[in-house]
């Protein structure tokens, strides 16, 4: 089975004619040492025989389990790990067990850690309040496959953006819609689809998160839906499939 090539989504414009890939495999950890968090994550696409560097994924693999890889080949970026660099890239940990495999550094330097641009700042740093004119606005949080975990240094950052906006505009309603990508898809020789129940779990989790951040109950409305379609979601970085697995936070004035 070949890696599934994703149709270039209209919203991702133009952008990119770069090849996107989607496949399932067991991850490989390469034990490079360029300081903290510098180890490499590699993923072999069994169908095409190519090795990809998925180290830039916000959620990194677990060497005990299969991963679903979704990403775009960054042809002009050299890997410090070995393999074609995927950027942007998402890796979702699946429940199927894998044999652990760790490679030595073999001369690869690994990725020296730099703080990702999407990082939540401490509470001591004052957020810039939104400036008028205000209008209805929708924020998206994007999730790993079949997961409802707010991804560190991705979704928490986007949630922080949303709550800063909400606090600034004092909306009449905040509608939280959880989506599940329930339409079956063929990936690496198997059919995958998200559990429909994850849509509700995502909505309730983000609803609780907003409550904890100060959105009053009476302004919150929760919904959940299946058969999600791709949208232009900042957190998906132009990748269509991850944008289906999301929560929409609609802020209505």
């Amino acid at each position: 089975m070949f890696a599934v090539l994703l149709a270039a989504p209209a919203f991702a414009a133009a952008a990119d004619t770069a090849e996107t890939v989607r496949f399932i495999t067991c991850p490989i950890y390469r034990d490079t040492d360029a300081g903290k968090k510098s180890g490499c994550w590699l993923a072999d696409d069994r169908a095409g025989g190519r090795r990809f560097d998925v180290s830039r994924a916000p959620s990194k693999p677990d060497w005990n389990f299969e991963i679903l890889v979704e990403g775009r080949i960054a042809a002009d970026v050299a890997s410090h790990c070995g393999g074609l660099v995927l950027e942007p890239v998402r890796s979702s940990v699946l429940p199927t067990p894998c044999p652990r495999h760790m490679l030595p550094a073999e001369g690869f330097a690994g990725n020296k850690f730099t703080l990702p641009p999407r990082n939540v700042r401490p509470l001591s740093e004052v957020r810039k309040a939104p400036e008028p004119p205000f209008a209805d606005r929708t924020f998206h949080l994007v999730f790993d496959f079949d997961k409802a975990f707010i991804v560190y240094q991705l979704d928490d950052y986007l949630l922080d953006q949303a709550i800063t906006w909400i606090r600034g505009v004092n909306p009449t309603r905040v509608v939280v819609t959880g989506w599940a990508a329930t339409d079956p898809a063929e990936v690496s020789g198997r059919t995958i689809a998200e559990d429909p129940a994850i849509a509700r779990t995502r909505a309730e989790l983000v609803g609780e998160a907003l409550r904890r951040l100060g959105v009053p109950d009476e302004k919150l409305e929760l919904r959940w839906k299946t058969s999600a379609q791709p949208v232009a979601a900042e957190g998906a970085d132009g990748l269509a499939e991850p944008s289906r697995r999301r929560v929409d936070i609609e802020v209505k004035l």
């Binding site: 968090k37 510098s38 994550w41 990194k60 975990f149 560190y152």
Partner: peptide, 8 residues
């Protein structure tokens, strides 16, 4: 999402 394992 730090990965398993993670170097630190």
């Amino acid at each position: 999402g730090f990965g398993n394992p993670v170097r630190n």
